[in-house]
Computed example of a mutant assay.
Amino acid sequence: MRALVFLFAIIISSSRTFGGTEVMDKQYISSGREAVELCVKRFEALSEKKFFKEVDRVYVLTTGEQLELLFTRGEVGTFGERSQSYKPYLACGVMSSSRKIDLYYLSEPFKDALIEVAGISQISEIPDVQAVDLFYLKDKSGFSFVDGHQFDPSKIEILWGTTLD
């Protein structure tokens, strides 16, 4: 699961933009925001430290019921040109249902996971998955939704070995 951070970065950088808020289901946006808040709170509680000041954005890959989040500094390359200062800080996996929302993965790159539940496939590993990428930018009130697009898994293979450099 440590590879989740980097696989997620590959997934995000492989997607294509085609519309922003017009094509995004409001429930996806709302669930994404709720997952962002939960990941930040759980990280602070489990790590016993404040959330990273350097993080300025979060990318959310979601099927609606499952969400994978990547908190970064700088653009990963999905919603603009990749920033030279791009750096991943935290990966978070969330399962959401009508009854509850809970984490199944939470980790900083190259560190032992704070939360790791076995047996849950990453979104990119699900055959014929229908998912969307959401982009939230940090502002004075937290993280606000900026843009979104359909997830395109066909481009992941091409990126192996190129986006991790």
Score class of each variant (00 low, 15 high):
R2M: 06
A3P: 00
L4N: 03
L7F: 01
A9Y: 01
I10W: 01
I11A: 15
S14T: 08
S15F: 00
F18H: 13
G19I: 04
G19P: 00
G19R: 07
E22I: 07
E22L: 12
E22A: 15
K26H: 06
I29Q: 12
I29C: 07
S30G: 04
S30T: 08
V36E: 11
C39F: 03
K41W: 01
F43I: 06
F43D: 04
E48Y: 03
F51A: 14
V55Q: 11
V55G: 12
L61F: 02
L61Y: 01
R73Q: 15
E75C: 10
T78M: 13
Q84N: 10
Y86N: 08
Y89N: 07
L90P: 03
R99C: 10
I101H: 14
I101L: 14
I101F: 02
L103E: 03
L103C: 06
Y105T: 03
Y105P: 01
S107W: 02
E108C: 06
P109K: 14
V117P: 01
S121C: 03
S121V: 00
I123V: 13
I126Q: 07
D128C: 02
V129C: 10
V129D: 09
Y136W: 11
D139M: 05
G142A: 09
F145V: 00
P153F: 05
S154K: 13
I156M: 07
D165N: 09
